[in-house]
Amino acid sequence: MPPAEANAMNEQRDQPDLKDARPVFEGFVVKALGRGGKTRARQAVTRVLGAGWTVRTFGDDESDFEVTRRERKGATLTARRAWEKTYALRAQPGLTYAEPIFTVPVSGPPGFRAEGLEQTV
């Protein structure tokens, strides 16, 4: 779920309870070593996840790849699906590692915003 959608959803809620704030799946990180790593990463991603995913390098290591939905508004994966796809990616030949990227909200108790300018953030 892209941030804009998720936040719009959050705004509709009446009770600010952190238990309502669930982890949000954002993508995967995969690692494919050596020459042709990106091709192998793409092939593995297509086999496991199907079409509609972007595979791109990031940072300084050309063997690291970020895997995200091509369409920002594409359907997200549930936690269960994300982990099952992670295990499937790890089993793919050509990939040496895979993990899901989740945003997990953890901070702030219910009623975290006090009156006036006092804020707990």
Partner: peptide, 8 residues
């Protein structure tokens, strides 16, 4: 608290 995405 990065609700609704944000780690990326």
């Amino acid at each position: 608290v990065l609700v609704g995405g944000g780690v990326l």
